[in-house]
Amino acid sequence: MVKQWHAPLLLLTLCALLLTACGSAGRSEVTDAAAALPALTLTDFAGRQVKFPSVPQHIVALGNGEADIIIALGGALVGKPTSSGGTTLKGTEDIMQIGTAHEVDLEKIAYLKGDAVLGNTGMNAKDIPAIESIGAKMVLTQANSVADITKQITLFGQMLNKVPEAQQLSADIEAGIKTAASSRTGEKPRVLLVYGAPGTYMAALPNSLGGNILELAGGVNIAADYPALQSYPQYATLNTERVMEANPQIILIMTHGNGEDVQKGFEQEMRQNAAWSSIDAVVHNRVRVLPADLFGTNPGTRVTEALQLLVSLFAELEAQ
């Protein structure tokens, strides 16, 4: 009777032990598989070998373009650059602001447990020791051309194990460039592209992102042969005599801050020098401030929007 009474209990116990063993084996296989994944080794734009034990899960971007690309690739963005222009990158409304490439906030990055920090080659190399001291890795890139942006997309795709997605984003940008090229008609407009902040105005050169977009859109950069500034090699000092000689048909202003304030300041500068009043762009009221989120910073995957905006502006000019 005792054996008959305990038989079902014994059977249940044996089943439980078997299930436990199977479950433990399953968990062990998953753990072993995760451990077997190879570590990531990236070569950033500074030629540095950056190693990660696995795909970064707490990514901090010091620039808007880098943040945009990570979002587009479906990466785990936990920190974004502090906005000074009042615009918020779509999809990052609830993400903490952590300073900028100019001024990195280590405390916030440490709080967010950042494991990958996306910085700028020219500005953030000096910050590598501090970033590594809090257990994060710095990945340095830059965006001085549309080609640079596609290289960023490729690199971040490797970092996130999202290579096919990165290839598609790059293909979309290439398609946008071809569309812009095919839509160009007529004579190329002469353009002065200015980077402005209150009291500071520089001409953007072809080796700047804005200058590259300008040429891809079909414009002629009148400052193409201006000598580059030593501290800002993508820009040059405005030369009134040379601007008058080139006689730009349109003046475009890029800025990080308040576009209206910058435009007013630039127009005041022009009024102080009567020579500007004879320039075609001024005579025909063709001084435009470009959107800060597309031209005041690296727009990331939205670079095709910036390109199309200039194509449309040039088409309007041609139609006048």
Rank of each mutant, 00 (worst) to 15 (best):
N239K: 02
Q249M: 06
A36D: 10
P248T: 05
A275T: 14
F45H: 11
A223F: 01
L290T: 07
S133G: 05
N124G: 06
Q57E: 11
A175D: 13
D44C: 12
P56E: 08
V303T: 10
V311L: 09
Q4P: 00
L192Y: 04
S83Q: 12
E269I: 02
A171L: 14
R190T: 07
Q167C: 07
S182M: 11
A101H: 10
P189N: 09
A217N: 06
N298V: 00
Q167K: 15
E66M: 15
P206M: 03
A72N: 06
S208E: 01
M138H: 05
Q272C: 00
G99T: 04
T185G: 06
L19W: 14
Q320R: 08
N212Y: 08
I213F: 09
A274R: 15
L317P: 05
Q249I: 05
A116T: 09
M123F: 09
A7Q: 12
G85T: 10
V78A: 04
L160C: 05
G210V: 02
A130T: 12
A224R: 09
K162F: 04
S145F: 05
R184A: 14
M138W: 07
T301M: 07
V194F: 06
D148V: 02
T100H: 09
T255Q: 05
A125M: 14
G210L: 01
A16R: 02
M159G: 06
G296T: 13
S28C: 05
A34T: 14
T301W: 10
